[in-house]
Write a protein that binds this DNA or RNA. Structure first.
Length: 824
RNA sequence: GCCGGGAUGGCGGAACUGGUAGACGCGCCAGACUCAAAAUCUGGUGAUGGUGACAUCGUGAGAGUUCGAUUCUCUCUCCCGGCACCA
């Protein structure tokens, strides 16, 4: 055995071994339970960052652990290869996005291999490859045929100087990142998927995801946003631009008597119509258009509005109320119009205050003693109706259905369920994405590309000028005969949102080589993913889209389950100096140089030890040193053992208290580590426990014969249980200990319950909840005897002198608390 | 603004179901080895007081429930993630 730990040499050897033996090739067979473990695939941005390494280490640890538990494990890897950064790189370096992307894939793939992740590389996928995206195009057409796809106008960020649609991140302080021009919201026709058709199921099935973090389920639930309420129709006093009424949705129809005005979005059809004839309104609507397409922008704007000059009629009491246009009403939610109840809604309240509109109280608190002060803020609680004619005195919950029924009878309203979720716009006015397989024919209209003509290939040789999509300037791409009438027609030049690719890749990993179909029977074997791991930043969009895709694939008979991911782990970010690691902050750490210096095992160990996986992780150079030190100590301890080893074969025959203590610690550690890795996913505490066991083993070796069987047992236990985390060093040490197999193919250690037996326990004695003594007592002591022992302890006596004992609380095997009251 | 999460020694974190706050690691201090340094090893390390046994304080701030609260409830502060075209 080499006297020193040399990660560079052994890691390369071990990786060659895995490659030569195809250790991680996954096959479909049914004599073992399958386990599909997937980490969110990376965007090939150039090189691996520490966040990637953390993500993939977590997945690799779980995969290897499950393998040792006897499961048939699939752990694949691929590349989420379409996206904006490739276009940015093309502009900056004059290199085509395809070339740039494939170069990055090669580089990052090499880095992943150096880290020793147990992937089945035969299943590698790149979403920018036509073999992949052709099935996405095929599937989109299936959804189109099923009526789940439609085209409508939708707003984008428009750079009027570059003549280009901008992503939100390309809009800086309201201006285009390259031109500096003020962006405008502009409507263009775009393709949408009807995710709202699945809103009910996407919400309901969250209940079935018992192994998802509650946090993520709550975020999805709020995002889907089911709201019960009423649609209410307000007739305009005079018909305007052929609009007769304004429909609103409200969750509070009980406040209908408190409506003092209506507010419509600047993008509401009535606002658009009025802007054409009324200059002040036109000015206001235009000003509102100079805000980028992000809800956060709108929601933080100071509320402002303009009066339309029009009025509407409140259907409950025929009151005439003014109609305003305001920037705080979203066109995308509900009908783009709200009934304003400033007395009971804070946003309406602020708007009414600013423009001096009336504020009327129509709800009083349940508790008649508490007062409502409408001079400070709106009262948004529920309560009892006042100033509401014959509904006065009813509670809100009674008044709501009563008012809805009245409106329904008068045909000016009805009960309605509203979703916050909007249909998914999948069109992007970009080059580096999968072409949307649609053709526009002057005579036949919109025609999907026939299956026989798929894939619609994205041309890979392009030049970039940053103005519009290159596809729009490539007649050889967009000019095509109409599939129906064969006359000249034009292809869609928009490409898909890259969330499309990441919504189904997990299933394609089951059969990436299948050229005739999207999926085959191997999908039924592997899907659903048993364990999915990825950043918390994907908690809503990616996971919701993938769940939606899965359900549509199910309804097309392509998969058999309801949900794609059985168990989810949302991993935290990697920080340095308290901030997210990023190139712009210049606080990144390069994984490759760390591997060069310390080896992959040290990097993996540090990342798993520094924090539990869901929490953010603070990078520490000295922490990495500490991880390296631990591995060196493990190497030295094993070396010392092998040099003296003529060990007895049976640890159970070693009977001194020290031998028993080491064995007990060993088996307590098996119990803890198995629970920490298998159930809790707290790898940091598992590692801490193994460090403690190695510490105790080394102390034992220094004071006893170091070739004892219990030492061998402890070392082998640590090596096996560390092997998912540090697979290279443990494979070498395991073989040095004389084993012909490798840890990944060896069963996980099991507990000898005999070894766990304890004869005595340490019990804490408290007086009034403060620790006053610790007692070592026989493990089977009776409560009464424990109490008597506690009451005669010197320090306990000091604290119970001159007091009356009120009661004694005994928590078995842990603690006894004597509750006393001082005599005065 | 809205939704979700977080805050514990000098630092990362532990305490799993309301029951010993600070496991494990880093850093620091002292010692051993060394001509010396690095590496390695041994011991110490929340604050305050005390020679000591021990005592008091202490988990972002303030209140509450409890024999007992880092853990549960309420109010607040600050930080982080998401907000539909970054992925």
């Amino acid at each position: 055995m080499e006297p020193h730990y040399t990660p560079k040499i052994i890691e390369e050897e071990v990786q060659h071994y895995w490659q030569a033996h195809q250790t991680f090739k996954a096959t479909e067979h049914s004599n073992q339970e399958k386990f599909y473990c997937l980490s969110m695939f990376p965007y090939p941005s150039g090189s691996l960052h520490v966040g990637h390494v953390r993500n993939y280490t977590i997945g690799d640890v779980i995969s290897r652990y499950q393998r040792m538990q006897g499961k048939n494990v699939l752990q694949p890897i691929g590349w989420d290869a379409f996206g904006l950064p490739a276009e940015n790189a093309a502009l900056k370096h004059q290199v085509p996005p395809a070339k740039w992307t494939y170069q990055n894939i090669q580089l990052m793939g090499k880095q992943l291999k150096q880290l020793g992740f147990g992937y089945d590389w035969d299943r590698e996928i790149a979403t920018c490859h036509p073999d992949y995206y052709r099935w996405e195009q095929w599937f989109f057409i299936k959804l189109y045929e099923k009526g789940l796809v439609y085209r409508k106008n939708s707003v984008v960020n428009w750079d009027p100087v570059d003549g280009t649609v901008l992503a939100n991140e390309q809009v800086i302080d309201g201006r285009g990142w390259r031109s500096g021009a003020k962006v405008e919201r502009r409507e263009i026709p775009q393709w949408f998927l009807k995710i709202t058709d699945y809103a009910e199921e996407l919400l309901a099935d969250l209940e079935t995801l018992s192994e998802w973090p509650q946090q993520v389920k709550t975020m999805q639930k709020n995002w889907i946003g089911r709201a019960e309420g009423a649609a209410i129709h307000f007739k305009l006093s005079d018909v305007q631009a052929s609009i007769e009424r304004i429909d609103v949705f409200t969750t509070r129809p009980d406040t209908l008597f408190g409506v003092t005005f209506l507010v419509i979005s600047p993008e509401h059809p009535l606002a658009t119509a009025l802007a054409q004839q009324n200059p002040p309104i036109e000015t206001f609507v235009t000003k509102c258009r100079q805000v980028k397409v992000a809800e956060a922008e709108l929601a933080t704007l100071e509320k402002c509005g303009v009066y339309t000059g029009l009025t509407a009629i409140n259907p409950i009491n025929q009151e005439i109320i003014p109609i305003w246009i305001a920037n705080y009403v979203l066109m995308d939610y509900g009908t783009g119009a709200v009934m304003a109840v400033p007395g009971h809604d804070q946003r309406d309240y602020e708007f009414a205050r600013k423009y001096d509109l009336p504020i009327r109280q129509v709800i009083a608190p349940m508790d008649p003693n508490s007062a409502v002060d409408l001079s400070q803020k709106a009262y948004s609680e529920k309560g009892i109706l006042i100033n509401s004619a014959n509904y006065n005195g009813l509670t809100c919950d009674v008044a709501m259905p009563a008012i809805i029924q009245f409106l329904a009878e008068k045909r000016c309203g009805e009960k309605q369920i509203q979703w916050r979720l909007r249909d998914w716009g999948v069109s992007r006015q970009r080059y580096w994405g999968a072409p949307i397989p649609m053709i526009y024919c002057p005579s036949c209209g919109t025609v999907p590309v026939p299956e026989s003509q798929l894939p619609v290939l994205l041309p890979e040789q392009v030049t970039f000028d940053g103005v519009g999509s290159p596809l729009k300037k490539m007649p050889e791409f967009y000019q095509t005969p109409c599939p129906k009438c064969q006359r000249p027609a034009e292809r869609e030049t928009d490409t898909f949102d890259t969330f499309m690719e990441s919504s189904w890749y997990y299933a394609r990993f089951a059969c990436p080589d299948q050229t005739d179909r999207m999926f085959d029977e191997r999908v039924d074997y592997w899907v659903p993913v048993d364990q999915y791991i990825g950043g918390i930043e994907h908690a809503i969009l990616h996971l919701l889209y993938a769940r939606f895709f899965h359900k549509t694939m199910r309804d097309l008979g392509l998969v058999k389950t309801n949900e794609p991911f059985t168990r989810l782990l949302s991993q935290g970010m990697v920080l340095k100096d308290g901030a997210k690691m990023s190139k712009s902050l210049g606080n990144t750490v390069d994984p490759e140089s760390l591997i060069e210096q310390y080896g992959a095992d040290t990097v993996r160990l540090f990342l798993m030890f520094a924090a539990p996986p869901e929490q953010s992780l603070e990078w520490s150079d000295t922490g990495v040193e500490g991880a390296y030190r631990f591995l060196k100590r493990l190497w030295q301890a094993t070396l010392q053992f092998t040099q003296q080893s003529t060990a007895a074969e049976n640890p159970a025959t070693e009977n001194t208290p020290e031998h028993k203590n080491l064995r007990r610690l060993c088996h307590e550690t098996i119990r803890k580590v198995t629970d920490d890795i298998g159930r809790r996913y707290t790898f940091n505490t598992a590692i801490a426990a193994m460090m403690e066991l190695l510490n105790a083993t080394q102390t034992f070796m220094a004071t006893h014969q170091s070739n004892a069987a219990c030492v061998k047992e402890a070392l082998e236990t640590v090596i096996l249980m560390l092997s998912p985390i540090v697979p290279h060093i443990t494979q070498v040490l395991w073989q040095e200990l004389g084993h012909p197999d490798i840890p990944i193919l060896h069963p996980w250690p099991t507990i000898d319950s005999q070894a766990l037996h304890r004869e005595t326990l340490d019990i804490v004695v408290q007086v009034n909840g403060k620790v006053r003594a610790r007692l070592n007592v026989p493990a089977n002591i009776e409560n009464k005897d424990l109490e008597n022992l506690a009451l005669v302890h010197e320090n306990v006596i000091r604290h119970i002198e001159n007091t009356d004992i009120q009661k004694v609380i005994v928590i078995p095997k842990k603690l006894i608390n004597i509750v006393v009251k001082h005599n005065d």
